[in-house]
Simulated assay, not measured.
Amino acid sequence: MARLPRLTALAAAATALVALAAGPASAGDLTLRNPRVLVHFDFSAGQTPESIALEPDGSALVTFAFARQIAHVDPRGDVTVLAELPRVDNPRTPVIGIAAAMGIARAEDGTVYVNYATGTEESGIWRLRPDGSGPVQIARFPATSFPNGLALDEECGTLYAADSARGIVWRVPVTGGTPRAWATGTPLTPKSFVGANGVQVRKGAVWVSNTDRATLLRIPVRPDKSAGPIQTRARNLTWIDDFAFVGHRGDTVLAAQIQVNKVALVRPDGTHRTVLTRADGLANPTSVAVRHRTVYVNSASFFLEQDPDPNLLLARLSPHKG
């Protein structure tokens, strides 16, 4: 598959970005050990893993952005394509110009939700039932939107989608319907490329990364379910993409930094340090997931001009030994 011209140009310009400002390791800090690539994907077939959701048995559900597919990766690394989103003959997706399967979220009953970015009527949230039936569109985004990260608040029956082009967090019922702009404001907007990107729900708040602004944001959910003031929780996270929380308590985050080939451990006070690099097998990491002490990292190779290596990497969470 042809590489995206815009992404290629941005890769050449990336050297002008400010380097990651990492803090020192602290007592009780965590690190990642024994990184290994579980499976290498086929870039030429569009197997560029963008987002990830985990199943109870440790399998991973990933979206292959360029192939418009949802795939299942079992703990051995065997890959099964579960569904393919409909082909769009003339996509007009903002930022990237092609149709792409983006964020993914999984409900406890096995229902899967996926953002499909096309710039056409097909752009929106699609649902995949565990009964094997095909994907069905349940919400439609404006053509000027670029739906990227997707998060599910199952308790409230709500999906949150990050719009990278318009700087909006959209709110959609899991039953489907018209998306509502839930959160807006300068901290979510892009500067030149991608604004709001990854999104996660955590303890009464929606967290969002902004790639252009290199920030991690927290937006409280008020009692009436409206958005509270946007809070900046971490800065200088160069090329931050999606992210995941560590454990069920606290606000420690593992963040993928796509173009600089890093995963950062972001502490609750906003300081951060690198815990994985290109030498560990990263190839433009796009998303992170955590199950118990196992960390999953997708790499899509969007910016690698030579020898692209899209893959799914596993590592082990351990206490940091300074």
Rank of each mutant, 00 (worst) to 15 (best):
Q231H: 13
R33F: 01
V297N: 08
A181N: 07
A283I: 00
L30K: 11
P190A: 10
D29R: 04
L276G: 04
A27E: 15
V288P: 03
F146V: 00
G103N: 05
N148T: 00
L61T: 08
A16L: 10
Q306H: 15
T238N: 11
A25W: 11
S51I: 00
A99H: 06
L17M: 09
P310K: 10
T184S: 11
R291W: 02
R171W: 08
G247S: 12
V290M: 13
V246D: 10
T48I: 08
K225V: 10
D131T: 04
N298M: 05
L304K: 11
A19K: 13
V263Q: 03
E154Y: 04
V297C: 09
V208A: 02
G103P: 01
W170M: 04
G97V: 03
A234W: 13
T111K: 05
H248N: 14
S287Q: 11
R92C: 09
P86H: 11
G177F: 08
F43S: 06
A214P: 04
V174W: 05
A101Y: 07
G46W: 12
K262L: 07
T211H: 06
V81N: 10
G176A: 12
T189R: 15
K262W: 00
A143V: 07
P308M: 11
P319L: 14
D89A: 15
N284D: 15
L237G: 06
G228H: 09
I138D: 05
P86I: 09
T178C: 00
L17V: 05
I240R: 03
E84L: 03
T158C: 07
C156G: 14
T294S: 13
L314T: 09
T80S: 14
G250C: 07
T175K: 15
P24V: 03
V172M: 02
A143L: 08
A22K: 07
R3W: 05
N197G: 02
V39S: 05
Q231N: 05
A67W: 04
A205V: 08
I230V: 15
A2K: 08
